[in-house]
Design a protein around this nucleic acid. Structure first.
Lengths: 164, 164
DNA sequence: CACTATTATCTCGACTTCGAGAGACTTTGG
DNA sequence: CCAAAGTCTCTCGAAGTCGAGATAATAGTG
């Protein structure tokens, strides 16, 4: 039935042979989501090699870039958007500061906090990286038509929205 | 336009405001793949809590379970199927042995190798876990119809197959 | 048969992440 | 205006992963 069987088809076939009492249909969707997510990781890593960024560096700089001028956010906002722990974000900011892509400033409105400000070098890097990322993602998606991409995004959004 | 906007819509909107010269359509698909993959991680972790397995434990035991009786594979096969490094697989086998879920045997046909054999306790655990996983995944997918799940899986398979 | 290349497993140090807790500051409620 | 509760950032130790290298055995070649 599959137009072109993939590894997930083989895995499901093995399961069905061993456990014919169960319905493995969910694996056909979600195991592929998992595998595609790994491919995306690899594609991102490759795309960021030229602008000289690690994926995590891009993630932090992208949050700052999207915030617009003056490209400033608190560590708290950054760790929430990037889904990492506070210790991880402290470590990431340290390394971005060491590379000269951001700097720390004191928050004039809150003595507990600081502000992370993207430097000009950081902005140059992230602007180059987002173009490379979009090219790489577009390449990954080129196996299906634009119309199919849109139905895909709509189905995926419904999976995210409803499972809150 | 979106039936129900999600965080990806907000991210794309920010990017479009800052970089109106770029087309962010690929993010609508692939950022959702990434987020769904994180939700799946969480769902798996929760589903395996009752049978008492960590996600990585399930992954290794599932490979052995799918292999069928006598539930035996080499470390090399396991690390290839699970996409981890050799050091990681050694470590995982060590811990599964300590928990009594697998045991190491010498390979009669290859003096370099060993065989990882799943114990009865391991089999019981993985058989309970796969049921729990399918229930959890089914729940995650309940936001869309079965017909939609099938078109989703077909589109996702084409993305994987062609990008080899 | 010897010799080289390949393969399998394990070791070990570097790296990253998490998350509980510390310390400093702010907010809330009487 | 004070005390308690809450919030923000950073510290630090535990845990998991990677990947190069060590060790040992097999496979291929002449």
């Amino acid at each position: 039935m599959p137009a072109q069987p993939d590894e997930v088809d083989l895995i499901v076939r093995s399961w069905e042979r061993e456990r014919p009492d169960l319905d493995f249909a969910p694996l056909r969707v979600l195991s592929r989501v998992d595998r595609l997510s790994h491919q995306l990781d690899a594609a991102r890593r490759a795309a960021f090699a030229e602008p000289g960024l690690e994926p995590w560096e891009f993630d932090v700089l992208a949050s700052l870039r999207r915030a617009g001028a003056p490209f400033t956010l608190s560590p708290k906002t950054l760790l929430t958007q990037n889904l990492v722990s506070s210790g991880t974000m402290t470590n990431r900011i340290d390394r971005l500061v060491a590379r000269g892509l951001v700097r720390r400033e004191t928050d004039p409105n809150d003595g507990r906090g600081i502000l992370v400000v993207m430097t000009a070098a950081g902005r140059d890097a992230v602007d180059a990286a987002i173009s490379a990322l979009l090219a790489a993602e577009s390449q990954l998606l080129s196996a299906i038509t634009e119309r199919e991409q849109e139905s895909l995004s709509i189905l995926l959004r419904r999976l995210g929205v409803d499972s809150k």
